[in-house]
């Protein structure tokens, strides 16, 4: 698996330094938690890693490939999918259509195939089955036919996760996947993350609940004021004085 890392990332908004010469190397697979107080730069880091924001300086690499300057869709096609802090879904289409939309390399997404391919390609039948599999995994199979906008907040979070998984990406960046969801749904999400880890994927998630981090994460990076201040096994990292200082003052 390709190594995912960034070197010397710097980003400012106006005069506010959000990331300062930040470098981090992620493991090739496993569950990585990214924690830190509000304003530490976690979401900015995710936005830069996925091409939604341009860094002022620094580089992001997947293997030897430099990702800086690539558009978000190109980065996604390289196998880096993400979810957002706010729920982003197409609420006017059905739940299963959201997952189908997420499937990569669809023949009839090309103009000529859309116009001149008559009948349903085998690939679409397969995609439908796969979409149902992902919906089953997040417990939304029975809601597959309703509009995504009719789901509850927690269910929508689960659907965003299903969409992210349906891209078949190897690296999943999840921005607060458990924030605001019912504890039962949060447990379900934790199990999904473990499932993804068992498939050999790399899951990087932002989280505020340290109890959840201890339970799920295998690696932890703590951010403060645009820098990584600690990284390693969660049990060790959370004991370090600089981390307790950031969290508990």
């Amino acid at each position: 698996m390709k190594n995912f890392r960034c070197n010397g990332l710097t980003k400012s908004f106006g005069g506010v330094h959000v990331l300062t010469d930040m470098s981090v190397e992620f493991p090739t697979s496993g569950i990585v938690a990214l924690v830190g107080p509000n304003g530490a730069g976690k979401t900015t880091l995710l936005n830069i890693l996925t091409g939604f924001l341009r860094a002022d300086a620094g580089r992001v690499f997947l293997g030897n490939r430099d990702l800086i300057g690539l558009s978000p869709y190109r980065i996604s096609r390289l196998g880096i999918a993400r979810t957002f802090q706010d729920i982003r879904l197409i609420t006017a289409i059905s739940v299963i259509e959201n997952v189908l939309l997420s499937r990569p390399n669809q023949t009839r997404e090309h103009l000529l195939s859309a116009l001149f391919y008559f009948g349903v390609p085998a690939e679409e039948v397969q995609n439908h089955e796969t979409a149902l599999k992902f919906l089953r995994a997040v417990g939304l199979e029975e809601h597959s036919g309703i509009l995504a906008g009719e789901l509850s907040y927690g269910q929508q979070k689960l659907l965003t996760l299903a969409c992210c998984m349906a891209t078949e990406a190897h690296i999943l960046l999840l921005d607060e996947p458990m924030a605001g969801v019912h504890p039962k749904a949060a447990l379900q999400i934790q199990n999904l993350l473990r499932g993804l880890r068992n498939e050999g994927k790399l899951v990087i998630f932002i989280e505020h609940d340290l109890a959840v981090v201890r339970q799920v994460a295998e690696y932890l990076f703590v951010m403060d004021a645009g820098r990584i201040i600690a990284g390693g096994r969660p049990t060790e990292v959370l004991e370090r004085p600089e981390v307790t200082e950031v969290y508990f003052g």
């Binding site: 939604f52 978000p72 869709y73 999918a81 957002f84 982003r88 879904l89 609420t91 891209t167």
Partner: peptide, 11 residues
């Protein structure tokens, strides 16, 4: 509906 979401899915 949401161009950013579509881009994040590789479109």
């Amino acid at each position: 509906e949401d161009e950013i979401f579509a881009q994040a899915l590789g479109k």
